[in-house]
Every structure is written in structure tokens, then in C-alpha cells.
Amino acid sequence: MMADFGLTRTDHKGVVLNEARVGAVSLAFTERTGGVSEPPFRSLNLGAHVGDDPAAVAENRRRALAALGCADLADRLLVPNQVHGDAVARVRAGDAAELARVRKEIAAGADAIVCTAPRVPVLLNFADCVPVILACDTGFAVVHSGWKGTIAAIAGKAARVLAETAGVSTGDLVAFVGPHITADAYEVSDELIGRFHARFGAVVPPEGATRLLDLGGCIRAALEEAGVSAARIVDPDLSTVRENDRFFSYRAEHGRCGRHGALAVLSA
């Protein structure tokens, strides 16, 4: 982790955020406490498609936004339909027509949103896949990177799109890798290891050497390929499996659980 940037773990009346600020961007990875959902979604479940009470999810999202300091922006919140692809949506303005256009686009499926519009919060949801937030002084990207998105290098793609949209270099970006299933708990097939080794080389041992896949290492490699400096990639090694008391884990909870979030907003 670089000295100038990092995540601070803060308790906001029970809602715990691992948060940071880059320029005018406030960003955070939520934990599972401080909400109103009942088991098996207890308690700050932010996912609307897991079987939880919709009213509970809405209240949990309101609490998460309040913890980030933007409770008044709930009606402007963007939450994409995550489909394990590499589509990146862009938000350049916060007027009603633009928000309606983006909502239609992300309902069809998107796994990253780049935003340079003030006062438009963005939320993506997770329970083992890797959340990535990219930020510069005037914009951000929130990225969902499961294994399909990781092998497609969606984080690197989002970095390039954010840099282009914000008018900066990818070297100006800071990347934050959030809680996810880490290599010590993520066993996959030899065939999948082989595919990742072919894409990421020495980052992933060759087929037959191990069945443990390091998604975080692959994402860091993809970000560096896109021009993000290794010194500006923050990865605190938060494990959804080892720290299942703090974060939801689809694998550890046998497929029935809530979703924590990656959340960001640009100040006016």
C-alpha cells in the first residue's frame, strides 16, 4: 500500500465503511453490519436480487449513503444489473435525461460505471467477486470483477475509459481493491488456471502447479498494463472468506447470503 493513499475503517453509527477520499471523490467498501436485514442476509445487505425484503434493502442503501455523507442522493443512486461481462457505462452529467439514459443502459447489463458527474452515487454489489474503485480528482469508476471480468481485464478497461472521460492519464488514477475471495480460499479447475496463466503469465502458475487462483494479483496486473502505477494500487488483502464476520461470502455461506457494496460519489 502506498503512503499517500489508503482505506480507513470507520464506524458510522453501526455502518462500517472502509473508506478513502481522492480529490472530490468519496469512496468506500461497506461491511455487513449496521443494517436491518434478517438472516441469512443480516444485516447491511445492499443486493436487491438475493431474496431479501425490498424495504430492508432500500433502508440499508439509505444507511450506506448516509455513512458516505450523501443521504440526500438516494433518488440519484445508480446500481447496474451485473452480468459478469466487461461493459463499462459512462455518466457525464447528472440531469434527469442523462440519468434515465444510463439507467436504461445499465439495466441491460454493465459491470463497471465511470462517472464524472457530481452528486451521482454509484453502487455495485459483491459477495466474493472483486470490487475495484478507481478515482482521480474529478471522477471515478466502480468495477465488478469476477473471474470472467478479471480474465477480460475489465478493471484495466475501466481505467482507460475513466482517464479518457476525465481528461487525465491512467497514471493519475488511484485504484482500490476491495474485499474478495483471496487465493488461499479460491480453488478452481486446472483448465481455468491454464486460461489465466495464458492471459497473465507469471502472475498465475501454470496448469497443474496449483488450483488456487489469485484474482487480486491478476487485477493488479491488468491495472498496470493499463498504465496505473503499482504504487497507486491499494490492496489491503481483505478476504471475504477469512473475514466472513465482516463481509458476505457466497462460497463460505453456501450460496445464500447478502451483498456488501463498493460505493462512490463525486462532490459538487
Rank of each mutant, 00 (worst) to 15 (best):
F29K: 05
L78A: 04
R251A: 10
R256K: 11
R119M: 10
C129R: 01
G69E: 03
M1Y: 11
L68T: 03
E59Q: 11
L192W: 12
A152R: 07
V241L: 07
G217M: 03
G146C: 14
A163W: 03
Y250C: 01
P206D: 10
A64G: 04
D214Y: 09
I193F: 08
H49C: 14
G208H: 09
E224H: 09
E38Y: 12
D237L: 15
D172P: 02
R119F: 07
L162G: 02
R103C: 01
A222Y: 04
E38S: 13
G14Q: 04
V177S: 11
V132M: 05
H197F: 14
A48K: 06
V203Q: 14
T240P: 05
H197Y: 13
F200Y: 06
A3K: 14
T210V: 12
R246K: 07
G51Y: 07
V142E: 01
V122Q: 07
S26R: 01
V142N: 03
G216Q: 08
I181R: 05
A155W: 03
V174G: 10
R246S: 12
A159I: 03
R32L: 13
I113A: 07
E105I: 14
K13H: 09
D72V: 11
V228D: 08
L27K: 11
D190S: 13
V168E: 00
G171S: 10
A198P: 01
V22S: 04
F247R: 02
L78D: 15
D52F: 06
G35F: 00
R119S: 14
A209Y: 07
L162R: 06
D237H: 10
R63K: 05
A112I: 14
P39F: 08
E243W: 00
